[in-house]
Each structure stands twice: as structure tokens, then as C-alpha cells.
Design a protein around this nucleic acid. Sequence first.
DNA 1: ATAGGCGCCTGCTGGC
DNA 2: TGCCAGCAGGCGCCTA
Length: 284
Amino acid sequence: MPELPEVETIVRDLRPLLVGRRLSSVTRVGSLELRRPWLEDWHGSLVERCILEAHRRGKWILLRLDSGAHLVVHLGMTGRLTVKPAGDPLEPHTHLVFDLDEPGRQLRFSDIRRFGCAVLIRDDAALETFHRDNALGPEPFDLDPAAWRASLKATTRVIKAVLLDQTVVAGVGNIYAVEALFQAQLHPSRRACDVKPKEADRLRESIAHVLTEAIEHRGSTIRNYVGGSGLSGGYQDEFRAYGRTDLPCPRCETPIAMVRVGGRSSHFCPKCQPAPHKARPKRP
DNA sequence: ATAGGCGCCTGCTGGC
DNA sequence: TGCCAGCAGGCGCCTA
């Protein structure tokens, strides 16, 4: 579900509800496994601890506790992290419930498909290891222009796959890759190394632009996503290409087409985003 | 090095 | 009406 704008919206919603609050208890609901195991043993660094900060890095949500530990959450495709009144019925597929010291409020983690995870990370050093293992690339808003051009030059992969590679740029998922490529007028199957410097610049600006717009609309709700206080997003009504197969291109009215690139649906305008020329057979 | 395929899961939609 | 294939915001693993 959530790409950078959705995760950012959740963090912005949660920050005023969580920062300064103490977690008075944590309950594991149900016994279904998540993508990574939830570490029961570490409750000591969590229970009765205060939340100092709420941050986002790529698609990860990071809550810093006064024990020095970090509660780190990834929402996968269908994860939700919300603050709800304790009296509200638990929605189906809830996996973790954290009672807050503010009476009658709970932080809840639910995830239908269980591609998400919530883990406790012991301290700052362990968090660094965690980040190093994930090898997250830079945030899309502070891509260095020269480094960005260089990272495209360095690979023969198709540009769409590069946008989805979290080690190149963190936080972009399928929706915003599609929208950024549309905005930059680049075909998803262009080889990254064939993208010209000017086009690379345009793409970098388009990524930031599309993500900023989406954050302003509180992200996109297709099916499951809601923000930290339960509100849906609105950016799905602003899509120019994603999910708009056969609908007119907002720029030229050519029907939007769809190809599968790297196993993911990629919507594009056949006129505004011309297909790359077929590579000529190499001379001996 | 990279593309493509699968697998992890559940739920919803569209076509028959 | 009912069934079933196909598809979905992510990511990691395997093979060729």
C-alpha cells in the first residue's frame, strides 16, 4: 500500500499523537507471523518508555524511545499504523496493540497480507547496522544531481526498475514511479544508461514534484491505506497515468497504455513517452 | 549484472 | 448467481 507520501502522511499524523507519550503496554494480537518476527523479549526497552521522535526513512517508520531503542515499522502492501480510542473495535488483521499513557488511546498495527513488519531495534548502533543492511539510497528530495545522473549511467537496467530500487532512491514505489515517468515523459522501458543528462534532471525533478504533490493530498488510497488518524488520501484522484489504461492522456489525449515492466504494471502515454529504439545488434 | 519468475498473504473484481 | 483466475501500494530469493 504505502509508498513515501503515504508513510510521510502517517508519520505527520502520528507525531503529535505519539511524541511525549509513554507506551504503557504492548499486546501481540493473534499468532500469525509477520515478515520479520516480533521480539517479545525486548519489551523491557519498550514498555513504560516514552516516545521521543517519529520519523520516516524511505518507506520505514521509526519511533525513537527514551530507552535508546527504536520501534521500526514497515507497512508492506496493506499495513496500517493508527492511533484509535481503546474502545473502538479492533479491526480484522490487527497484530499489535500499544496502550498509550494518555488514557483510552492505543497505537495499533494491522496488516491484511502480512508483508509488513514491526521490529524493536535495541540501540543506535543496531539501527545503523539495520540501515546498512537495508542499504537505503538517498531520500528523493535531496538527490544530488550529479550523483543521480551517475547512478543512472551506471546500470543497463530499465529505468522503471531503477526507480523501484530502494538502494538507488528510497521511498518510490510503483504508483509514483509511473507518475514520475509520465511527468518526465520517459518510457518505463528506457534503459537507465541511455537516459540523457537533461532527461535524468527532468526525472529527478518529476520524482520530487509528484511526491510533494501526493503528500499535499495526504497520499493515495486505492484500497487499504489510511493515515495515522484513520483518514484516507486524495491523490488517487490526481493520477495522470497510474491505473488509467485506455483513458485519455491529460497532455495529448492519446489513450494511456499499459505494459508490464519488471513484473509490475506500468502505465504510460505512447505518444508523450515514446518507446526506446530497439538496440541494434552489436557488431562483431 | 540483470531479467524474469516465483513466493509470501488476503481480498476484491471481472469475466465466464 | 456463483466460481475462479488474475490482480494489488513491497520485497527477497532463485535461476538462467
